[in-house]
C-alpha cells in the first residue's frame, strides 16, 4: 500500500488504474440504476472508456505501444456499437414513444 502522506503528491500508475476502476464502477452503477436506454448506453461507454484508460496506463507502464493500437481499435468498435444502439433506440421510439426499458414487456416470461 502506498504511504498515505504522499498519496496526493506522488501520482503514479496506481492512481490512473484506480481512477479507471472508479469509472468502470460508475458505469456499472449507471447500468444498474437507470432505466433510460440512452443513459444505459452512455454508462456502457463509460465502462469502455475505463477499459481504455486502464489499457493506456498499462501500455505506459510496460512501454508497449501495442496497447495504443488496441485502444484505437476499441474506440472504432465502440463507435460502431453506439451507432447500432442508437438506431435501435430510434426504431423503438418510432413504435412506442418512449425508451424506458422497464416498460418494454411485450416479450413475457
Amino acid at each position: 500500500m502506498p504511504n498515505l502522506s504522499t498519496v496526493f503528491s506522488d501520482v503514479g500508475y496506481a492512481h490512473f488504474l484506480v481512477l479507471g476502476a472508479v469509472l468502470f464502477a460508475i458505469g456499472v452503477g449507471g447500468v444498474l440504476l437507470r432505466r433510460n436506454a440512452l443513459i444505459i448506453m452512455m454508462s456502457i461507454e463509460l465502462m469502455l472508456n475505463a477499459g481504455n484508460l486502464t489499457i493506456l496506463t498499462f501500455a505506459r507502464m510496460h512501454g508497449d505501444l501495442g496497447g495504443h493500437s488496441f485502444a484505437m481499435i476499441v474506440m472504432a468498435v465502440a463507435a460502431a456499437e453506439v451507432a447500432v444502439g442508437l438506431a435501435i433506440v430510434v426504431a423503438i421510439f418510432r413504435g412506442r414513444r418512449h425508451v424506458d426499458v422497464d416498460r418494454m414487456n411485450l416479450l413475457k416470461h
Binding site: 500500500m1 502506498p2 506522488d10 501520482v11 503514479g12 500508475y13 496506481a14 492512481h15 490512473f16 488504474l17 484506480v18 479507471g20 476502476a21 472508479v22 468502470f24 464502477a25 507502464m61
Partner: peptide, 15 residues
C-alpha cells in the same frame, strides 16, 4: 478492484 490495482508497482511516479 482498487485493492488489486493499488498494488501495481507505482513507485515510478508519472511526475
Amino acid at each position: 478492484i482498487g485493492s488489486v490495482l493499488i498494488d501495481v508497482p507505482s513507485h515510478v511516479t508519472i511526475a
